[in-house]
Design a protein around this nucleic acid. Structure first.
Length: 483
RNA sequence: CGGAGUGUAGCUCAGCCUGGUAGAGCACCGCUUUCGGGAGGCGGGGGCCGGAGGUUCAAAUCCUCUCACUCCGACCA
């Protein structure tokens, strides 16, 4: 994409309404614009990131055996009366009346809706287990929206629902999602730690929240130091096998939110305990027949007996993750995207568009990168060099290629790695090889969080890896050290 | 929902106390000089001062109401 043809409305100064760094950077980098309190429009750059996250979430859900559906945003109040939540939910629920004066609501979640779908169609244990998910906009009329997309009223969420015959089956489904979540966040370049959680308004008995560590997190969390050096993607996963050992392994490592942490009875010795800030990005629940019972979602078991479905629900805050990723990946100059979610893989800067040699070289390189399926944002604008550098640093693309008269004279261009700040003058051929090869290049080796980059795969991978029943590849995403 | 603030140009803000008909920097447009970390010069466009009502000869400024947004607290993907 040529920047001269792109829509990237940058802000040079911090908008006064934005307090936290991710909110400020998202506004400044032209990713979002606020529509009203807690409601945002997504501009091209922000939308690209949102879609990348969505794709990874989708791939891991599919891999775990969940099936994608799409349920409506507007739901009938009637359904929620069946579960009893219409009155329980309170003012957080946005209630609407249609022209026939029928009571509707903009869904804050979809347990009732999905239960209604399943109860109408699944009558036998032979049709179980099933997991359904969708990625859809939700609305919760927060009293006080804040932190930009991290705590908006309208937000994009992946919510999955599992249906099993009995508690043992439900636990197996729970484990699948538990593992899928670990993998999803790891691929996003985040260290997400599952913590035992209260079930809140969803209800139920077993629940974990997934919290990522970020200096600017909203709540204090405590965990075993061992968490920092774990690599979840190194664990082989067979979703058809027994996942309980993996579940046990990852829940065995100490981790607790502020409310649950007891300094006096903490099993981890002081020197091994990490105190950090956390942001909740996912939450999973097992709640049995809380909805299936009142709503009559029943199946006949092998013994001929009728039983209410055992259910669980599993949420990931997709839009919140955009903010959370920035909280965990930024510096004074701007955003630093992990490669897996970067809106573009490479920022190509032509410092002197007026110069024929610079322009020809840049145009040529741009064409070759596109030809190699590398997502590249090409700054071909007639701007001062400083402005171009600042722009690229702000929007945080993983690598920058700088073409200017100084280098061209010596036959080189500059490659700059955004995260480390490391720069190298290399030949054009070398640059191309570095950025399109499947093997890690020299720069990558010294740069944290990029050791296994495979830049050329961005498009080609595209979610078509065939059936996801088998083993998983290792090291799809390295995990940057959050400390 | 309690408490506290803020609404003036696209962005950051001054002007308001002490009423006299709208400003700065950045951004934008034109010309020009520049050109490796948000450059310089000259010229230019842009605001019913959140909205409504009131006081006054006169309101961005004083009063009343209203709307929006933000912050702190209680609640959440």
């Amino acid at each position: 994409m040529r920047l001269s043809e792109y829509f990237l409305p940058l802000l040079r100064e911090n908008p006064s309404e934005a307090q936290i760094v991710s909110h400020r950077l998202m506004l400044r980098a032209g990713m979002i614009r606020q529509s009203s309190a807690g409601i945002y429009s997504w501009l091209p750059l922000g939308l690209r990131v949102l879609k990348k996250i969505e794709r990874i979430v989708r791939e891991e859900q599919d891999r775990a055996g969940a099936l994608e559906i799409l349920m409506p945003t507007v739901q009938p109040a009637e359904l929620w009366r069946e579960s009893g939540r219409y009155d329980d939910y309170g003012k957080e629920m946005l209630r609407i009346r249609d022209r026939h004066d029928r009571e509707m609501l903009y869904g804050p979640t979809n347990e009732e809706q999905v239960t209604e779908i399943v109860r109408a169609s699944i009558k036998s244990y032979r049709d179980l287990p099933r997991m359904l998910y969708h990625i859809q906009w939700k609305f919760r009329d927060e009293v006080r929206p804040r932190f930009g997309v991290m705590r908006g009223r309208e937000f994009l969420m992946k919510d999955a629902y599992s249906f099993d015959l009995d508690a043992a089956g439900a636990k197996r489904s729970y484990n699948k999602m538990f593992v899928a979540y670990l993998r999803t966040f790891a691929r996003l370049g985040l260290k997400a730690i599952p913590m035992r959680a209260d079930t809140g308004p969803i209800g139920g008995e077993l629940s974990h929240e997934f919290v990522i560590l970020a200096e600017t997190g909203e709540s204090a969390v405590y965990c075993d130091r061992a968490w920092l050096s774990t690599d979840i993607l190194a664990t082989e996963v067979d979703y058809h096998g027994d996942l309980e050992p993996i579940f046990q392994r990852w829940t065995g490592l100490y981790a607790a939110t502020d409310e649950k942490h007891e300094p006096d009875s903490c099993p981890v010795p002081r020197e091994e305990l990490v105190e950090a800030r956390g942001i909740e990005v996912g939450h999973i629940f097992y709640f049995g027949d809380k909805y299936s019972q009142p709503m009559g979602a029943l199946v006949i078991g092998p013994d001929g007996e009728t039983a209410a479905l055992e259910m669980g629900s599993y949420g990931i805050g997709v839009s919140r993750l955009v903010g959370a990723l920035i909280e965990a990946n930024h510096d004074g100059a701007g955003i630093i995207w992990p490669e897996s979610v970067a809106p573009f893989r490479i920022g190509l800067i032509n410092l002197r568009p007026g110069d024929t040699r610079c322009r020809d070289t840049a145009d040529d390189l741009y064409g070759k990168l596109l030809g190699a399926n590398v997502e590249v944002l090409y700054d071909d604008r007639d701007e001062s060099p400083g402005a171009k550098f600042a722009t690229m640093d702000l929007i945080g693309l993983p690598d920058q290629l700088v073409i200017g008269p100084r280098g061209i004279a010596g036959g080189t261009i500059e490659v700059k790695h955004r995260r480390s700040g490391e720069r190298q003058d290399v030949s054009i051929e070398t640059a191309l090889r570095l950025l399109t090869a499947s093997e890690p290049g020299p720069l990558a080796a010294s740069a944290p969080g990029t050791k296994a980059r495979r830049p050329g795969r961005a498009r080609s991978e595209g979610g078509r890896k065939g059936p996801r029943s088998g083993k998983l590849q290792d090291g799809e995403r390295p995990i940057p050290d959050p400390a």
